[in-house]
């Protein structure tokens, strides 16, 4: 484990998924043995429109490098306007993040359907890469390398 730390820890990502749609999609990725970074952690909620921006901000402040909302999109069993509501949550969280000096691009959302295993894996890989770059840049500009 020492070795990995020297190269900089891979970004930690918190995923919010939903019980009936996006979490089964994430499960499917595992079922098909599709790999994504093991520093991705998931918390499942009933519907993405019920995610509290407080949780997102808390996670970023406490040490997650990124928060990803795997939204239901048009498949949501609760409401048709789920995407809009979820987008509103993301926007307001991003605004709050900005005010606190946290890069808003550390919060992301995308629709993940119950069979969207591949797209989920791609999202995780891309997001992880983006966060890694972001981390490197901040480390360079900030001059402080916390992880070394």
């Amino acid at each position: 484990m020492r070795e990995r730390k020297e190269g900089g820890l891979p970004p930690k990502i918190l995923v919010f998924s939903t019980n009936s749609i996006s979490d089964p999609g994430i499960d499917l990725a595992g079922l098909l043995k599709m790999h994504y970074p093991p520093t991705v952690y998931t918390i499942t909620v009933p519907c993405s429109s019920g995610i509290n921006p407080d949780w997102i901000i808390y996670a970023l402040k406490k040490g997650f490098d990124g928060v990803f909302i795997a939204a239901d999109g048009s498949d949501c069993p609760y409401r048709e306007d789920c995407s809009q509501l979820t987008a509103r949550i993301v926007l307001s969280s991003q605004e709050r993040a900005k005010e606190m000096g946290i890069d808003p691009s550390r919060i992301k959302m995308a629709a993940v359907c119950s069979v969207c295993a591949e797209s989920f894996v791609n999202h995780m890989k891309k997001f992880s890469e983006a966060l890694k770059k972001l981390k490197e840049n901040t480390n360079e500009s900030g001059g402080k390398n916390v992880s070394s």
Binding site: L31, K33, T39
Partner: peptide
């Protein structure tokens, strides 16, 4: 706690990290 679909299977390529997760 889901440590199969979202851990052991998804990260079967990285057992050490999967254990930490």
């Amino acid at each position: 706690v889901n440590i199969r679909e979202q851990d052991s299977w998804a990260h079967s390529d990285k057992p050490e990290e999967a254990t930490e997760k």
